[in-house]
Amino acid sequence: MALVLWLLLTVAANTPAEGVDQEPGAFINEVFAGNPPAPEVLWITRSMREPITEILGHNPDALRVRYWGEKHRTAWILEEIGKERPITVGLVVENGHMETVKVLAFRESRGWEVRYPFFTDQFKGTRLTGENELDQSIDGIAGATLSVRALKKLARLALYLHNQTPMTNDSP
């Protein structure tokens, strides 16, 4: 009985809020091994608006983006709407290539398959081409077209934004 109670309490304690796989703060902590740097902000300048609009397919909805950077590595918490509701994604870029893509909160009713590593692992190692496209093809998921599209946009955006930070010039 005690074991059952302990199991129930453990499961309840570790179950994320509805649609939330990991809190953004926990993601940043995990990425920097519990010692995250102070957050920085990147202002979306006029020259950055056009490529960002091209990547997202709409105007950026904020004037600045917060990120955490150390040497040549930056971490981003970005959001994009799949069909109706925003998908929160944590992304880590190192030396201009994608290191990690993790869906932190998925609020859509369909397309949740994009949360799984079999999909997100495809982004590892991708870079941006000169046209701000991903240099590797990402396999889609039947029935999750809009969520897949949203994640591709965010991966391109994180790579683009990384290239706009001072971290991009740091040599390894």
Binding site: E23, P24, G25, F27, I28, P39, V41, D61, A62, L63, R64, V65, R66, I77
Partner: peptide, 16 residues
Amino acid sequence: FTPDGKLIERLDNSAG
């Protein structure tokens, strides 16, 4: 927001 209503940023616990 800017005083004329443009969203600058959304902050949550990850931003401290």
